[in-house]
Design a protein around this nucleic acid. Structure first.
Lengths: 94, 94
DNA sequence: TAAACTAGTTTATGAAATAAACCAAATTAT
DNA sequence: ATAATTTGGTTTATTTCATAAACTAGTTTA
């Protein structure tokens, strides 16, 4: 039994990372939109993912407003692949 | 975004249900063995799954010792199928 | 210039996962 | 015979975590 990656085995974080795996830099509001999370929750979870080195967070200003963008890292991508592999095994899927 | 089934989106419970999906009645010790959980944790989690109607628990005695057996229900099987479907979608898998 | 909105962050709380402690009965050792 | 150990669990206590609510800081609009 390989234990599942606990950081990724959580719906919101998994949704974030899965989404980011397929795209480039994405801003906070886009993530809010696709995950349907609250802002507080999203803020907390991307910070955790950043702390783990699974994504980069870039802060700037766009049209006078703060802009927070996220991008998955290689580590994040690898962790996601590993997680999916472990999960399939747990589920007895090929 | 279909939310994932919270009861199933937990490693131990998912391991239990996934395993039971492929077999008949299984006793407590076998589940302990395949999940590598502690007895307390296993006891708690099968009870939750039973409360949700995802599995049946049958208590008896075998060779003078208490024997607890579990079996997945149709509801449990359906919930697992649904969970896997939702998960695949979340992961952008076909 | 006050109200409402943008784009977040911080904190408080309730729920849940887990391990540790416990229990009753059976078995084995002394 | 009885003390110690093992079996097969359950209950309880603790810690962690997910989440919502409250807050911050600034911008735009009426």
């Amino acid at each position: 039994m390989n234990k599942l990656n606990k950081l990724l085995h959580q719906e919101l974080r998994l949704a974030i990372v899965s989404y980011l795996a397929g795209v480039e830099w994405v801003n906070f509001n886009k993530l809010l939109d696709i995950t349907e999370a609250t802002k507080g929750n999203l803020s907390v979870q991307i910070k955790k993912l950043e702390a783990a080195g699974y994504l980069e967070i870039k802060k700037s200003f766009k049209d006078n407003y703060p802009l927070t963008q996220c991008k998955i890292t290689d580590d994040g991508r690898n962790a996601l692949d590993e997680y999916v592999k472990d999960l399939k095994q747990l589920l007895n899927m090929k």
